[in-house]
Design a protein around this nucleic acid. Sequence first.
DNA 1: CGAGGTGTTGAAAGTGCTCAAATGGCGTGG
DNA 2: CCACGCCATTTGAGCACTTTCAACACCTCG
Lengths: 253, 253
Amino acid sequence: MDARLDFGQTPTAEHGDVVRMVMAGLQLSAVFAGLSDIRLQEVADKVVQRQVEDGDVLCHQDDTAHTVWLVLDGWVKLTRETLDGSEAVWDVLGQGHIVGLETLTEPYRYTTRAVAAGDGCVFAIPHSILRKMVDSEPRFTKALLQNALRQQQDERLDMEHRTQQTAPQRIGCFLLRLAGTPDGGTIDMQLPFDKGLVAARLGMQPETFSRALAKLRAESGMEMTGSHVRMDVGRMSAYVCGACSGVYPCRGC
Amino acid sequence: MDARLDFGQTPTAEHGDVVRMVMAGLQLSAVFAGLSDIRLQEVADKVVQRQVEDGDVLCHQDDTAHTVWLVLDGWVKLTRETLDGSEAVWDVLGQGHIVGLETLTEPYRYTTRAVAAGDGCVFAIPHSILRKMVDSEPRFTKALLQNALRQQQDERLDMEHRTQQTAPQRIGCFLLRLAGTPDGGTIDMQLPFDKGLVAARLGMQPETFSRALAKLRAESGMEMTGSHVRMDVGRMSAYVCGACSGVYPCRGC
DNA sequence: CGAGGTGTTGAAAGTGCTCAAATGGCGTGG
DNA sequence: CCACGCCATTTGAGCACTTTCAACACCTCG
């Protein structure tokens, strides 16, 4: 399953190609984008690329961490077990997002379980190289700080939404953020993962999701067949953002 | 209201005392605790101590930031306006906590309003000196990062609680965290601020809080008269932590 | 065709919210 | 000292939304 990049085992030319590819992959995250080539290569040397299949577990909650992961392709869901054995989904991370950065501090333990949602590809990045970078490259630490602060803001927004938006609005907001383009007009797109996971990500039951979807269709004119979505951005945001835009325009709303 | 520390206006001896006092105050936060004396003094030179009264507004949501505040004494609540004009309380910060650190990144704007909850005392710390420290003192950036990550974990826990705990359990958890001591036995303590604010902090209405309190009394044997609380820590945590301790032992649970 | 996963629908129950009113403490002015 | 008014807290009743349990439709895969 793991595939150590075969540095030194292949001709130099190819080696260079691989390194360049890994470096490009790392730069998907703003955290690494600011590093100098030399530093970036230093990280790239320690990176292990890994293909993951649906359900593969990257890490377990409360385990001591030695690795973080950068999502290259596919989705990784962060979950926590509830006492009754069911799982609560914290977040679903896509390309360019990093799993497990919270382990750079004190308890050095993963606060969630990370599971592949569908097949995908990730970089495994050893803790050791990150700590080395933190200790020797202030710019990197700054980037991590910015990353953490930005993430914090996103999570606060999420929290606000959970308390202030109704279920249909939360779904609408999710779709708007997915769309990304605030230019208005009717757009088509695909749900990135199945409805059950979307529901969990939004903190609601599948049944609630289904019903809320029906209501959202009625209220906003959105259409959804299977994983295909068509909606009018303007109309959708009019329906959704009344509950929050006055406060803090979400990205994508 | 503002009281610029009068460096240079007082005899040297007294000046030294003031500086030492400010430095000690700064060290209430782990963010500053790791700085060398020289660096700490550099910050202390720029700090303005300020007495605040109940309702004083430190900053407005969405304003561009030039200052952060370190709470020395009293409580500062972070709020956001909801569309209907009412306010949602994000957090209530006490001694040693810093208001507005999120403004060190990109939008450079406060994401919440900060209002004094009761009389208190804060240090106003200019952005400029913080940025200077971030740029010149890697250890400081690391401390900020650790602070941000830790805070992130706390907020995630909060989020988990809001979705998985019932109202009485949330109150119980709040009390347990307030108590801090996980040694068991019956303890006495005081609510740090009024019930309305506790309710808001926990994301519930005052009426719900009141009712939940009644239930908590019945279920956990806790007593509360006015702001005085008496409870059996063991019994309380047995009632409260069933909803989360299996997952992630909260601090204080 | 049957099995299992995914998504939808129905009915009942739970939880917190809103609106409304009562209670109680506490400081001020008479 | 007492009456008054203000404010925090409590209580009551009804409502809205989400969840839960259950059943069913749909689709894909073997």
